[in-house]
């Protein structure tokens, strides 16, 4: 599904990713771990099409097509979803209306009819229930004044509505208490099937108790320095990042 080959990228002239290769197949979950500043979010932003990051080498293929040719909007419509480490507050844009716009943009792309507001409201209520989100978050402005935990839940809500083929969740677990973490993880698990894939970026192995990865990769200074299975995450937890970075 996703093929990253020797990816080099820089921001404002500084090289941050120094040759990342990663291959992800349908149905797989890959965890990407690593110390702060190692380039995890940079990788996520490049996958989602952020204009500030310049790819200076390598390539990314998504379902066989060159992903780097696509704008952020096109990547989203093609089925890529990035859950932001820091979801953006957008005052004045109604959360429910925004979700409906995003949902219908997908439908229009697929030559389907737009869903009317009432039907969409039902769908939204159902997804919010799954994430134990209060109804008032429908009427609030998008992420505006949400707590850290509610923002992360709102990201997963968007994922649940958009049903992406490939989701990249950037530290969705950070800032969540254990109850919220469980709810979010259950939500993510319920969206899994054999046709989609997940990249879980995390700093802590705790999340991986709830969402079980098939592969674990450790990034350090813009390179994948170690790959393995779930056991690698546990080992990291007990030994600390120094174990792989020195």
């Amino acid at each position: 599904m996703l093929e990253i080959k020797d990816l080099h990228a820089s921001v404002e002239g500084n090289e941050i990713l120094k040759g990342i290769s990663l291959s992800i197949k349908k149905g797989e979950i890959h965890a990407v771990m690593g110390p702060n500043g190692s380039g995890k979010s940079t990788l996520a932003k490049i996958l989602s099409g952020h204009p500030s990051y310049e790819v200076t080498g390598g390539e990314i293929l998504f379902e066989g097509k060159n992903l780097l040719d696509l704008e952020a909007e096109e990547r989203s419509l093609a089925g890529i979803f990035m859950g932001f480490q820091y979801p953006v507050e957008v005052p004045g844009v109604n959360n429910a209306e925004f979700l409906r716009m995003a949902f219908n943009a997908r439908r229009v792309k697929a030559d389907e009819e737009e869903m009317d507001p009432l039907d969409f409201d039902e769908l939204l209520s159902e997804k919010m229930k799954m994430l134990k989100m209060e109804n008032k978050y429908k009427e609030r402005s998008l992420n505006d004044g949400f707590s850290g935990g509610e923002k992360k839940k709102n990201e997963i809500l968007q994922m649940a509505i958009l049903e992406p083929k490939l989701a990249i969740l950037d530290e969705t677990d950070s800032g969540l208490d254990i109850d919220a973490l469980r709810i979010v993880a259950e939500g993510v698990n319920s969206l899994r099937n054999d046709n989609n894939a997940l990249i879980l970026i995390t700093h802590y192995q705790r999340l991986l108790d709830y969402i079980k990865p098939d592969f674990v990769h450790v990034i350090h200074q813009g390179k994948i320095v170690k790959s393995g299975d779930k056991a690698l995450a546990l080992e990291l937890e007990s030994q600390g990042y120094d174990w792989v970075t020195t």
Partner: peptide, 22 residues
């Protein structure tokens, strides 16, 4: 904000309009 909206499938133009309206 503009980028965030685009990552959810809104076109650059639609996202700008939404922000302007809001």
């Amino acid at each position: 904000q503009w980028f965030y909206l685009q990552t959810r499938g809104l076109s650059a133009k639609a996202a700008k309009e939404l922000l302007t309206r809001s």
